[in-house]
């Protein structure tokens, strides 16, 4: 056997050269929670990317139905976008308020975020209802199926976010700024910002590119 064998103990690996930085041990709970939630958000983005992909594949499959440019209303979308971007800012304000344990600014920030979210949802709901009433529902064509699911999936997330937001406010009201409540608040803020980022994608891919076609 012409193999060079290293002798000695198991970890006498020749690669162990230089200083090894010792791992300090388990991370604190706040880090762990935030990290786990990040991982969840990444998986959520993967899910969205499937709907984006489906939209991209089916966008031209209008089955003699309307094209994107015939049904999108730029003005509504602009208002929606402004609402959501603003709400991200107010959500950030609420997070900061929670961190410094200021109830007034927390409630204010959260309330404004909630209202903006609801306005967004209302506009989206009206857009959907209007399309359906004109006969352009999701079963009209594969393009509309993909459109409704992508935008609707985001809308569902925003709805869930609003529900979460209200629960968060109730929790702060009942429990105060406890460590576990603050951790949840941090996750909520991450979630809300992520929805914002996804909306930027929806806005660009669906409405901006779509209205040109």
């Amino acid at each position: 056997m012409s193999m060079t064998a290293t002798v000695g103990r198991a970890h006498a690996d020749p690669h162990h050269i230089g200083v090894v930085v010792e791992h300090p041990g388990p991370a604190p709970k706040r880090t762990v929670t935030a990290y786990g939630f990040w991982v969840f958000l990444l998986s959520d983005i993967v899910m969205f990317s499937c709907f984006f992909a489906a939209y991209a594949v089916l966008v031209s499959q209008t089955a003699d139905g309307p094209k994107g440019s015939e049904i999108f209303e730029q003005r509504n979308v602009a208002i929606e976008t402004v609402c959501l971007l603003l709400s991200s800012f107010t959500c950030g304000m609420a997070s900061i308020a929670a961190d410094v344990r200021n109830r007034f600014w927390f409630y204010l920030g959260m309330t404004v975020t909630c209202v903006l979210g609801l306005i967004f949802l209302a506009i989206e709901f009206r857009e959907f209802a209007d399309l359906v009433s004109r006969g352009y529902g999701p079963s009209r064509s594969a393009f509309l199926s993909a459109f409704f699911s992508l935008v609707g999936c985001h809308g569902l997330h925003v709805s869930a976010g609003v529900l979460w937001l209200l629960t968060m406010m109730a929790q702060v009201f009942a429990k105060g700024f406890r460590a576990d409540v603050l951790r949840r608040m941090m996750c909520f803020a991450l979630f809300w910002h992520a929805l914002d980022i996804i909306w930027v994608g929806v806005f660009s891919v669906v409405y901006l590119l779509g209205s040109g076609v």
Partner: peptide, 11 residues
């Protein structure tokens, strides 16, 4: 018995 044979660049 060669308990130390746990790495070999050539292998």
């Amino acid at each position: 018995f060669q308990p130390g044979f746990v790495y070999s660049g050539r292998v």
